[in-house]
Every structure is written in C-alpha cells, then in structure tokens.
Simulated assay, not measured.
Amino acid sequence: MTDRLDRQFAFLNEADKLKSVLRGTTLNDGSRPENSGEHSWHIALYALVLAEHSDRPVNVDRVIKMLLVHDIVEIDAGDNPIHGDHDPLEMEVIEQQAAERIFGLLPPDQRDSFRALWEEFEAAESDDAIFAKSIDRVQPVNSNLQSSGGTWRDYNVTADQLQTRVGAKVQRGAPRLWAWLQPRLAGFFEPSPH
C-alpha cells in the first residue's frame, strides 16, 4: 500500500509541473498565456458541457479522462501550438518518451490505463477520442475569439490554415460546434480566394 501511494503521489507531484508549461493560447481576456494545466481543466469542462453536440454517442467520463491526461507529456515536450513551426515527427518521438517516463511513475495498473487513454486520444479513432480531439481544438478557437483574435495574429493564421488544422478536426467529431463558430470567425479572416 505504501509503495502504491508513493507512486501515485510521485505522479501527482510531477503532474503539477503542467501548470508551468505556457501555451500558445492566451486566457479569454488576453491578459497572459494559459498554462497546460488550465487548458486540461478547461477542456474537461468543455466536454462535460458540450457532450450533447458530439456527432456520435460518447462516454463523457472517458472523454474527460482523456482530456485530463492528453497533455501530460508537455511536462517534457512543452507546448507545440498547432499553428507553430515544429517538426511533427520529432515531437511524436519526444512525446512518446515523455509518456513512457511520466505514466511510468504510476503503479502498473494505472500506468497502463492512463497510457492507453493517452494513446487512444492520440490515435483519434474511437468516437470518444474523436470528440475529445474536437473539444481540444474548440477551446483555443473560443479563447482567440474572446480575446479579439488573440494569437491568430501572432502566428499569422489564415482562414485556410484554421480550416485545415482545426476545423477539419472539430468537424470530424462535433460538426455542430464548428458550424456554430463559423459566423463568429467571419470577422477575423479575409474570405478565401476560392
């Protein structure tokens, strides 16, 4: 029992570091960058509130669990904004190593369970993971809308980039949410030439 608790608290203490990982997205008021701990909490709340808008039936408890652990690897890998300039293959290797180390702090049953949820989220093949990915993309869009364009200006984001990198993922699991966002996005981007 003591070893199990030691391992669980080691993981929880390590997870606290997520609060120090600054993201490319700001708070809704634009006052400062959000941290990854705040992001994970906020998208878990988004899932709880918006689950009825999933394109397919989902187990919201599983979705929330995925969202709470999905960015844990950022403790080692840092945040790599979707509109930033980084090598996705290199980041995948770094994140896999981070997952091995960080989930490895847990007792074996929890290590395997949490790692499986993380892998499922990354693969985005199950209905739960597809919806979780959609929600992970919706929250930064809303934050940028609330902060008058937020970091879209910093990254020179175009409407086409937003559609390709974000919209397609949101539409896959929550098309009603993307449709709801469309008129709100119109004022931030020039119309596409095609």
Score class of each variant (00 low, 15 high):
residue 110 Q to H: 13
residue 152 W to V: 07
residue 156 N to T: 12
residue 119 E to P: 04
residue 103 F to K: 02
residue 100 E to Q: 14
residue 5 L to S: 15
residue 24 G to A: 10
residue 166 V to H: 04
residue 117 L to Q: 08
residue 29 D to F: 07
residue 112 D to V: 05
residue 157 V to P: 07
residue 27 L to G: 04
residue 97 Q to Y: 08
residue 50 L to K: 07
residue 112 D to R: 11
residue 186 A to H: 07
residue 77 A to T: 14
residue 95 E to D: 12
residue 79 D to A: 13
residue 47 A to D: 05
residue 40 S to K: 00
residue 67 L to N: 02
residue 101 R to G: 09
residue 174 A to R: 02
residue 98 A to M: 09
residue 128 D to I: 04
residue 158 T to R: 02
residue 28 N to A: 13
residue 172 R to I: 04
residue 186 A to I: 05
residue 132 A to D: 01
residue 51 A to G: 07
residue 100 E to W: 08
residue 111 R to Q: 14
residue 8 Q to V: 11
residue 190 E to I: 05
residue 55 D to M: 14
residue 159 A to D: 10
residue 154 D to H: 11
residue 172 R to Q: 13
residue 2 T to I: 10
residue 80 N to W: 13
residue 5 L to W: 13
residue 188 F to V: 11
residue 171 Q to Y: 09
residue 64 I to A: 00
residue 44 A to D: 11
residue 171 Q to I: 09
residue 152 W to C: 06
residue 120 E to P: 01
residue 31 S to E: 12
residue 180 W to M: 13
residue 193 P to S: 14
residue 107 P to E: 15
residue 20 S to Q: 12
residue 142 N to T: 11
residue 68 L to M: 15
residue 109 D to T: 12
residue 88 P to C: 08
residue 86 H to Q: 14
residue 134 S to M: 01
residue 57 P to G: 11
residue 147 S to L: 05
residue 176 R to F: 06
residue 167 G to H: 00
residue 99 A to Y: 06
residue 170 V to F: 00
residue 59 N to D: 15
residue 37 G to A: 09
residue 165 R to V: 11
residue 95 E to W: 05
residue 184 R to I: 00
residue 102 I to A: 00
residue 189 F to A: 05
residue 7 R to D: 11
residue 52 E to Q: 15
residue 61 D to K: 15
residue 31 S to Y: 05
residue 82 I to W: 08
residue 59 N to L: 12
residue 120 E to F: 04
residue 174 A to P: 06
residue 62 R to N: 14
residue 114 F to G: 07
residue 67 L to D: 07
residue 22 L to P: 03
residue 133 K to R: 13
residue 3 D to R: 14
residue 159 A to I: 07
residue 141 V to E: 00
residue 69 V to Y: 03
residue 122 E to Q: 10
residue 73 V to S: 15
residue 190 E to W: 04
residue 136 D to V: 02
residue 138 V to C: 01
residue 161 Q to H: 10
residue 67 L to T: 00
residue 120 E to A: 10
residue 162 L to Y: 02
residue 158 T to P: 01
residue 97 Q to P: 09
residue 142 N to P: 03
residue 189 F to S: 02
residue 137 R to Q: 08
residue 186 A to Y: 06
residue 48 L to I: 09
residue 11 F to K: 08
residue 67 L to F: 06
residue 153 R to Y: 08
residue 178 W to D: 04
residue 35 N to E: 03
residue 130 I to Y: 02
residue 37 G to L: 01
residue 116 A to D: 09
residue 177 L to G: 01
residue 21 V to Y: 02
residue 56 R to K: 15
residue 118 W to T: 05
residue 7 R to M: 11
residue 115 R to Y: 12
residue 122 E to R: 14
residue 154 D to K: 10
residue 175 P to W: 01
residue 120 E to I: 08
residue 32 R to A: 15
residue 68 L to F: 15
residue 86 H to I: 12
